[in-house]
Design a protein around this nucleic acid. Structure first.
Length: 358
DNA sequence: GAAACGTGGAT
DNA sequence: TATCCAAGTTT
């Protein structure tokens, strides 16, 4: 295997075609780090506007560390995987408190920060600090699987180490940052999951999948299991023109985001009554018979959701929380101040229309 | 080590 | 409409 040839051809190709992305215009370790966190399981096109806003609002570690977590969540709204925002904020605090305000360049130290795993550590160390660590992300696995005809499934954790081994051997230790980005760029632009553009690939002379006509069969994947379906009922409690919003705990699904009190339905022959009972249980309020507004569908990674939203006129009681960790009575025109999750955003137009009609 | 963890675009 | 899947990490 001509490793030097591979590295050179990849590097030359990258210099020719590389996209001008915002995080490629800086060597600031903080900015690189933020971009890598946002890019986790998220498309470049989606990330760009979030990245621009984030760097404008939180230009360095000190500003981020001093910000309210809620403000960070608000900026993260709609990007998904909200624990990333919490971890980023927490890590910034640790960097200020323990590391002199500088993103650490020591692999052991960096790797211990929350939200920084093997991939992000390697990316930051190579791109911002020129250290020889090879990244292994979805792009890299796909490219390696094809070029080396690797049978290892790319979506099965036990096989990850095999890809890391190959990536380590392939790494250009002279220009590790450029090399890592080039390999990912190749996966993103040419060696794509579907309909790869092999004629444009710098590695056609080396690719074993191409030579054996097996490109469409690689990479291998294990079959994911079907996500189940959940049914939730949500109640928009209305009192004197204000809506009750609750905040989800800082762990688990949609951590830290705001929503109308909601819960899974337990089979519910009578969803409206179930909603009223849910409101009593979750926030301790009594309401008039709930009126169905809309049912939205939403797909999460591991289950599908159908959420029925009801309008629940307040009748009595003071808020006592069981589940959510905060609440607020919000005027409908101020809902956009809170970070809300996708299902709530889908249901919101129906609610606002109903309120206007009252 | 399997499962949890979001969302939107492409097909 | 259903499925795939994208610059992964945590528990």
């Amino acid at each position: 295997m001509d490793w030097d040839g591979l590295r050179r051809e990849l590097g030359d190709w990258y210099e020719r075609v590389r996209r001008d992305l915002p995080w490629r215009r800086t060597r600031d370790p903080y900015a690189i780090w933020v971009s890598e966190v946002m890019l986790q399981q998220t498309r470049v096109k989606t990330v760009i506007p979030y990245y621009e806003r984030f760097l404008e609002r939180f230009p360095d570690v000190a500003v981020l560390a001093g910000a309210d977590l809620q403000a960070v969540y608000k900026l993260w709204e709609g990007l998904g995987y909200y624990s990333r925002a919490r971890h980023l904020h927490a890590a910034a605090g640790m960097i200020m408190a323990q590391m002199g305000g500088r993103v650490p360049s020591d692999p052991q130290v960096l790797r211990r920060l929350p939200g920084i795993g093997d991939y992000i550590a390697a990316a930051v160390l190579s791109i911002a600090f020129d250290q020889p660590f090879a990244v292994v992300d979805g792009n890299v696995k796909r490219v390696l699987a094809r070029v080396f005809l690797m049978e290892t499934p790319v979506n099965h954790p036990p096989g990850h180490a095999r890809f890391q081994t190959v990536a380590d051997r392939l790494l250009d230790r002279e220009q590790p940052g450029r090399h890592n980005q080039a390999l990912m760029e190749l996966g993103a632009l040419v060696c794509t999951p579907k309909r790869p553009l092999c004629p444009q690939c710098p590695w056609t002379a080396h690719c074993r999948a191409l030579q054996s006509g097996a490109v469409p069969d690689f990479p291998r994947r294990v079959k994911p299991r079907r996500p189940g379906e959940q049914f939730w009922v949500a109640g928009a409690v209305l009192k004197k023109g204000r809506l009750l919003l609750t905040r989800r705990p800082d762990r688990g699904l949609l951590a830290g985001l705001w929503e109308f009190p909601c819960d899974r339905m337990d089979g519910a022959a009578d969803p409206a009554a179930d909603c009223a009972a849910m409101v009593r249980r979750q926030v301790g309020l009594h309401c008039a018979p709930p009126q169905h507004l809309v049912t939205v569908r939403h797909a999460y990674t591991h289950f599908k959701l159908r959420m029925a939203l009801y309008l629940c006129p307040w009748q009595g009681g003071r808020v006592r929380l069981d589940g959510p960790d905060h609440f607020d009575w919000v005027r409908p025109d101020q809902l956009d101040r809170l970070p809300l999750h996708g299902a709530v955003h889908k249901a919101l137009p129906a609610l606002l229309q109903a309120l206007r009609g009252q």
